[in-house]
Each structure stands twice: as structure tokens, then as C-alpha cells.
Design a protein around this nucleic acid. Sequence first.
DNA 1: AAGTTTGATGTAATCGATTACATAGGTCCG
DNA 2: CGGACCTATGTAATCGATTACATCAAACTT
Lengths: 352, 352
Amino acid sequence: MDDVGQKDGPEHGGITIRAARIQDVAKLADVSTATVSRALATPERVSPEARARVLEAIAKTGYVPNPAARTLRSQKTYMVLVVLPDLSNTFFSKILRGIEETLFEAGYGMIISDLDGSPEKEAHFAAFTAAGRVDGAILLNGHLFGQSREGEGQPARITIPLVALCEAIPAADIPQIEIDNRTAACRMTQHLASLGHRRIAYVSGPASNSLERDRFQGFKDGLETAGLPFDPALVLPGDYTIEAGVRAGRELVARSTRPTAVFCTSDEMAIGLMRTLFSAGLRVPEDISVAGFDDIEFAAVAEPPLTTMHQPRRELGQAAASVLIDLLQGRPSPKLIRLETELVIRDSVAAL
Amino acid sequence: MDDVGQKDGPEHGGITIRAARIQDVAKLADVSTATVSRALATPERVSPEARARVLEAIAKTGYVPNPAARTLRSQKTYMVLVVLPDLSNTFFSKILRGIEETLFEAGYGMIISDLDGSPEKEAHFAAFTAAGRVDGAILLNGHLFGQSREGEGQPARITIPLVALCEAIPAADIPQIEIDNRTAACRMTQHLASLGHRRIAYVSGPASNSLERDRFQGFKDGLETAGLPFDPALVLPGDYTIEAGVRAGRELVARSTRPTAVFCTSDEMAIGLMRTLFSAGLRVPEDISVAGFDDIEFAAVAEPPLTTMHQPRRELGQAAASVLIDLLQGRPSPKLIRLETELVIRDSVAAL
DNA sequence: AAGTTTGATGTAATCGATTACATAGGTCCG
DNA sequence: CGGACCTATGTAATCGATTACATCAAACTT
């Protein structure tokens, strides 16, 4: 970092040859750089002969447009930022795949930001988008950036199109892709009630979470339509992780009177909870029924296979990406997309 | 796409104000743009007074350097490409997190490419790196790009630093971060043998895979040191997925003489396999022992909890990122890093 | 005291594309 | 036949930073 000449990279094996520029192509095809650019961006505005020569020259030189130069001039990055709370969570990875697929097909790249609950990271990525590194963003974390720094000397930054996925963002007027969490949770609760369960426990998500609020409402709706009383003692705190399920399980095992069914708001928690029940000598579903939510891959092969609420994760990702692309390309787009969930009945829930 | 003026984005809510440029900061601080640039890049080469004025002006304007312009001039993107075969696989997500963390701390962003077995995608990302969109790449997929297009009229492209993670890349002279798959598989095999198992089945990974070759070697090593014969009939094909485990399970269930232990080269396969065994009325580990590999989160809460070989996934990601950063910044870096695995004994394996 | 070094700063070239504007040649129409 | 219009193309400005080079004053050398 001291002086010039030092910072040129080291020899990392291969021969470094300057990549072809648009000028090289232009010279080879005997046209101007403008024509080369047009041959690629608007082929119909270039004569067939010139176009052919340009394409040939491109093939010969292996020319690939320099994205930095392109972005600098056209103000388009063809990059999308995906913000999520936890990259290592199974639930998100399939969604990410759906997003990536769709973005890829439309020629966009994906940059991932795993917030990991760090405000520092959040600030960083706020600056990141402000700096115009991405054309748009998909937010899976339930809130916008940097709302702290408003109104001050700070002038408004560039506004880029945003889409909220899964978790709604309360005060923001942006498209929202989600499932109907309330109805889904209600259906699951009714399912349990219909099998005769009257003492149904609920393992929640993080309290701050909009998903959680909806699902909790749905749970209460379900109790009500089934004519069951709501008992706060049967609500156990969780955060969608396996460990939270394990903890909730311990809590239940320690009780003298136990519920006959447990509705976990994520499959991870359900699987963790079942583990704890087994360790305590309880059987699922004979002694206690357990239901999950999400239908992750492991739900079908859990022991016993888990009754759960299927979320179309890949499709959620695809839908979010496709709405964002519409926004980016100036096409009209829906404000709200709700994909269907499906009750998947397996063996972890039984009639009383 | 027809004419000019059409392609300016639509009104998406917020007020769009031009972001501050280096010129605005320079004017406000009453210095040249060069001084602003230096105040940020090499503060020690700018007088304290000027620096203070610049920083104040930056705070006032909310200036953030335009990355496209910066990249265009300095040829540095501060972006790293991560190439992997399947984004939705649990095994990778924790590794990704380790990578992201480390990159973030060093000021690098992460672009993800989920190859999904598509050569088209591969070609795209080859062009992507060639175009200089990223400073370096971490490859989890076991091979380089576009080796097909060599020697032709195609001139060599820019060479960027690469690091291979998990899967080795045979013919490439690049740093490799991995575990000792052969030794790890050998140890697991010995563990099974030491408990009295003599008929040990092996559920493989994809045959083309270097991980698989190493683990298979290790399996044979383990048999040999235990004085057990190698029986090809006990090798079942797999590909690390849950479904492959289910299939292998069916195959075993159908046999008249079954192995007493099964070594699956991924936890996903082990879990899928156990599911099939249960469905057929077999018990683990009473009737048959099952071992996994990786120690994913679900291994500990499987029923029964899975005996497996722990891979430090997050650390693998961190190590790969940190080696790549060393390369990018011209520091010396090791050619090979091998992280330790650990045999995790749970309940899915028992003595005969 | 003259020459040399050092430090702080400014000027302007540069990175590589896109694109507004200019131009040249051809077609069409009254 | 001459202006209007269209098509294909070229010229050069532009995007916003970084940085080589120039400049100038102050400090230091001998």
C-alpha cells in the first residue's frame, strides 16, 4: 500500500492478456465503435453486412463488453441485491434458487447480503445500493435499510425498485410476494382440532416478525372456529431454528399436563421438538402430535414424516424476481402476489 | 425497446435525486477531485486540514463513490464470484455463510452462481469473469470454466485468482481448501469395523466427483486395515441427495442378505436411507447401523441421531475466502489447506 | 546561497462503453 | 428536379472516478 507498482497483483499462474475492447472489434470489422455497440444493442438499426462483420470480429477477438464501462454510461448494473436474515437457513436456500434462476434468464446477476442481525452490515448495504451497485433489491428480512438516517443533512439517495418477499414490510409501498400466513396457520389449527385435539400448543416465530403475527392470528382464528379456548400457557416462544424447537420440547416435557398436539411454525422447530420428545421417551404421534410449517426437504424423511404446510419456496423466489424484473424494465407489476399453500398430511399428527 | 425516452424507468414511488459526485464534494471542500480521492484512498498523503474539509463535505453531501467509475479506472471490482453446483443444498449454505462473512469484513461483495448442471450457465459465467465483473472466484464445483474453447482463434482472457473449495480441480494449479476426505472416510469405515461390522455397504457420491473418489479410496483403505474384503455388491450409487438415500434404501430392503452397517457419504443420503428402512419395518441401529458424512444441522436431531463425520463448513468457507483475499491483495498464500474433520458418535451406529 | 528533497495539491489523461448529434447517400413525391 | 425523409454510419461528448505528471512552496543539505 506504500507506493506505486507494488499493488499490481502477483503472478497467479496464467498469462494475462488484455481483453479485447470495443475499439479492437471496430477496427477489425472496419466500422466505428458506435456501430459495434449498435450491432449488439439494436441489431435492426445496422445493415446486415456490417452486422455480420461485427459479429465475426467479436467471435474472433472473444470480445465481451466491459460491464463497468457500460454501467458507468448507461446507469444500469444488471445486478440485483438479495437481502436475507440468514443464508444458512434451509428455508431460504430454495427460495434463493428460484430467484437466481429467474434473474439469470433475464440476464441479471445476484448479489447476496446475509444481514446476520448486524446493523453495521445493514448500513453497509444501504450505502451499497445507494452507490448504484445494483438496479434493484429483493428484501426477505422484513424491513428497509437505514431508516435511522432520515431528515438530517443527508440528502435523499437514489431510489431503486424493491420487492418484499415472504415478510411484509409494514410502512413501505412496494410489491409484496407472500403466502397467506394467517389462513395457512388457521387451516393447520383446524386440521388439528378436527382430529379431536383440544389442547393445542403453538411454538412461535420471533415476536418482531410480521410472519409470526399473521400466523399467530391464524392460530387463534383456527381455535375460535373450532370453538376452542385460547390458552396463553400453550404458546411457546421460538425463532424458527432447530434449537428453538429443542428448547420448546424441553419446556413441554417438563410440564405435568401436556398438550396433545403441537403446532410449530417451522419444520426446523418441529424436528427439533420431536427429537426432545423422543429423548424423553414420548412417542409421536401416539403420545403427542406434532405439525410443522414450510415443508422443507427434510420434513418428508423425518421420523415420523412430518405433517406440515407446504410453501412453494422456489415459486416464491421466482415470482419475486419476476416482479422485480418487471419493475426494472418499466412494465406494470402487481402490488401483491399470494401463492397457495397446501396442507401436507403425513404421520406426525394423529387423531386423539 | 423501440425508441429513446421509452426506456427510462417508471415512477416507482420515491423522489429520485442525483447522487453526489466527487466533483460536488471537491467544490464544497474547496479542493480538487484528486485531493478528495486521495483523502479517501491515502489519507496520509493529504494535509489534515484538507482531509477534515473533505470528510465534512462528504458527510454533508452523503457522497458514496460510484463503483462503476472506480472499477472502470482501477480495474478492481471488489466482487468475488462463488460458483456452486446447487444452491439449495444444505451443505453449501453454511459454507456460503462463512465465505460471505469473511469477504464482507475485507470489503468484498459476493456474487453467486448456481450452475445447476447447465453448461449454458457455465458459459455465461465464464464470460462474466472474463468481462472483469469480479476480482476473483471461489469454485465449489470441481472444475474450471470453458476449457472447451481453447487454442482456437480465441485469445486468452484475463486471468483472475481462483480458489478451489471442497472439490479439488485436477489439472489446475490453484489453491485448494478441503478436508482430507480419504482419511475421514477411512476413519469412519474403521469405526464401523471396530464395532464388529463385517458387511459394510457404501453409498457413493456422483462418480465424476473427486470427493467421491477420495472417499471411496478411504472406504477401501478402511476395509483393508480392518482386514475386511471389498465387495462391489455392497457399493450403491448415490449423489448426496435425500432421494439418492431413499433409493439406496429401497435397494437394500429388497435384498435377501443385507449389510449390517451402511456408510453414506452424505447426511442427506443417510437420513433418506433411514426413512426407507423404517418404512420397511427395519430398526436403526438395532437391525442395521447407518453412518453419515458432513454433520449438517439435521444430523443431530435425526431419529436416531446420526453418527457422522463432522466437516467444519463455516471454517472451510472462511478459509477459502481468506486465501482468495490474500491472492487478490498480492500476499503470499498457502497452496493447500486441510481442515480437520471429527468423528461424531451418536446413536445410529451400534455394535453388532 | 544554491541545489535538492519532500510534501501538498492541482491539471488533465484515462478507463471502455453508450448515445446525442452530425452527415452522407439514397428514395420518394409533388 | 428539388426538397423532405429515411437509413446507415461516423464523430465526439459523456458517465465518475483514479492517477500520472506537473507545479510550487517549504525544508533540508552541503
